[in-house]
Design a protein around this nucleic acid. Structure first.
Lengths: 224, 224
DNA sequence: TTGACCACCGACCGATCGGACGGTATTAGC
DNA sequence: GCTAATACCGTCCGATCGGTCGGTGGTCAA
């Protein structure tokens, strides 16, 4: 009979520890020994669950990408007009990045390292597909807004880059960002503030004149 | 007598090679052996010029930070009203990032890794001071613009984060960004396009109504 | 009781890591 | 000619790297 208490499988415990470590010092900066010590297992046991270090890394990245994918897609699925869905998408993305402290940095890091770490394993293909899935959905949303005349006509790839830069980078900026704000990036009030600032900048910067009506600030997303 | 041809000192050749390698695989991902091979020297010779790997890394980061510092400060020193200086600052920053292909990625990487790689060496203190110098100048510019009523009143730390996210991240996004745009991030036309997009977003997003007059696009900065 | 499967382990492997050390060739100043 | 400094090199070191291998103890079905 399974224990009633929170029983976390070894595989997930490994992923948790590896996520923390990889996000802080990157793929090359972390040894399997260090991960094993953090979990409380032996190094050989890690290879029982993951066939290689690269596969463990891909699994870590894939897991948080799945969370982001699921959350942002669910946010879009609720419906509403383009602006409502866009705001909700932003809120959800930033809430997710705020909830998972390692997500931003891990994502940016993986974006840097997979230039050489490109493999063809199942996990790595899954990562690529998930990224495309997330970006595809928001691309279509932007396109819909531009065609409807509610968003300014801008280059979609550039807007995507700007979205990543405004959201993911901020939550990945670590000690640098914390020194700038004088507090942790993940305090509820700073998260709320960031969401407001990003949305305000994008409202004024992206919305066409006739769509930009009441930009109510401070009434953010679901949680944070 | 010194040779008339382009004579590059070994120290600079080491910095060049290390910049390239570190920007691609990070501090932990590169061994001194690899740097030495790229320069055409032996590993021991690197330790003749730099007392440790960490110092070499700090020297690499410090060098490109110095370039950015000098260029952006010179751009501000030319003068003009707040909006003119702000635009010129953006142009100069992005031109510099576009010229030095490794700069963006190296900067973001160093921002990530020095959370644990924080030292008290002379070079590392210089890096910190240079960063503060650059951000201090643009902070004062933003403040001036907000007080003059020509820029919307926004949280300056958040605007700084947004500036980094919109500029440095883009030029650091590597293969990921190139797949999105279908071309190298450093082609002249894409650089020009990015500068226009960022300036347009910030014009609409930051400028107060009465200041936002003729946002002429496509008439960017000095070079690229 | 047996055998298959599972999670896990210690010991070990060749390779590579950052770095120390001693030595050599060249140059400049005396 | 001697000395000092500079730039460079080969060799060696202890530690750590990712990964393999041969186990051990436990659980469950036959």
């Amino acid at each position: 009979m399974r224990a009633a208490v929170i029983e976390i499988g070894s595989r997930d415990k490994i992923l948790d520890a590896a996520e923390d470590l990889f996000s802080r010092r990157g793929f090359a900066g972390i040894g399997m020994r260090e991960v094993a010590d953090a979990v409380g297992l032996s190094k050989s046991s890690l290879f029982h669950h993951f066939s290689s270090k690269a596969e463990l890394y891909a699994a870590v990245v894939g897991r948080i990408l799945d969370i982001i994918d699921q959350r942002t897609m669910a946010a879009l699925a609720i419906g509403g007009d383009v602006l409502t869905r866009f705001d909700r998408w932003l809120d959800t993305l930033m809430d997710t990045l705020a909830e998972h402290h390692n997500a931003g940095r891990l994502l940016l890091r993986s974006l840097f390292e997979d230039d050489e770490l490109n493999g063809t394993s199942a996990e790595e293909r899954h990562v690529d597909e998930t990224i495309k899935h997330v970006f595809g959905a928001v691309s279509r949303l932007l396109q819909e807004g531009m065609q409807a005349g509610v968003l300014r006509k801008r280059s979609i790839p550039h807007v995507l880059q700007s979205l990543v830069g405004l959201t993911v980078y901020h939550f990945a900026s670590g000690e640098f960002g914390e020194e700038m704000f004088g507090q942790s990036l993940f305090t509820p009030q700073l998260v709320r503030h960031r969401k407001d600032e990003v949305k305000a900048l994008l409202h004024d910067g992206l919305m066409s004149g006739r769509a930009r009506v009441t930009t109510k600030r401070g009434k953010g997303g679901s949680e944070s």
